[in-house]
Amino acid sequence: MVRDVTLGQFYPGNSFIHRLDPRSKILLLIGYLVIIFCTFNYLSLSLVTIFTLFYILISGVSPKIYLKSLKVIIVIVLITSVLNLFYGTGEPIWQWGIISITMNGINRAVFVTIRIVCLILASSCLTFTTSPTDLTDAIESLLKPIAKIHFPVHEVAMMMTLALRFVPTLLEETDKIMQAQKARGADMDSGNIVTRVKAFIPILIPLFVSAFRRAYDVATAMECRCYHGGAGRTRMKVLHMTKRDAAAFAVVALMISGVIVCNMMFPAVM
């Protein structure tokens, strides 16, 4: 049923990572993502892998949930790694007709797989440990500098906030409309693709109408509460960087230097 879908996979908790400033988390994630793609030999790759396991363990979210987040992309990972396996250059170590596998191909497959998996795990860690509102606030705060070049930072953040607020409401509404049309004999489960798409018209139109009506209402409500854009606006929750954030930055900086050292000490395989 539609109403079972919950948006944002935030798992409330009190771990070290949960308590980091969301801005730190975003910046650290970006640094980490860059470094994943700068691993050129197996030593630096294993360093990153170990670090990945480390933050998963201290994030206070069950590893099972991380595995679930991988399930969704398993197919993409498999396809890319298999493609990489066969597109290597150099001496083939195994050949069958036009299909050949080279050492380079194997290396590429391993690196691509681990990099994608780490990328997904790290992004999941961010969304698992940070509430959507905190994320929005952090993005707004980080993007503030580009507001100077007239990028509508506040407006974009406000839109995200409203979207987060209304997605569950609209999902519930979709469910209600579907039930109502089913009660009038709407058949959404049979027929060819054209009839199925057509069957959604009686659901989509009321949904759009209602979304517009809501938008109008919400705009009025916001105006009544003195909303007049981002200028002169304060926030109740002020984001604070603490010692904890400094520690996190230090740990990631160490890992990054470790990766660079490994890259320099040993020959690159990629």
Binding site: L162, R165, D217, V218, A221, M222
Partner: peptide, 13 residues
């Protein structure tokens, strides 16, 4: 304060 309780609240907390 208006009629529809769903359309008054703008934040998700």
């Amino acid at each position: 304060v208006q009629q529809n309780p769903d359309n008054q609240l703008v934040a998700s907390i």
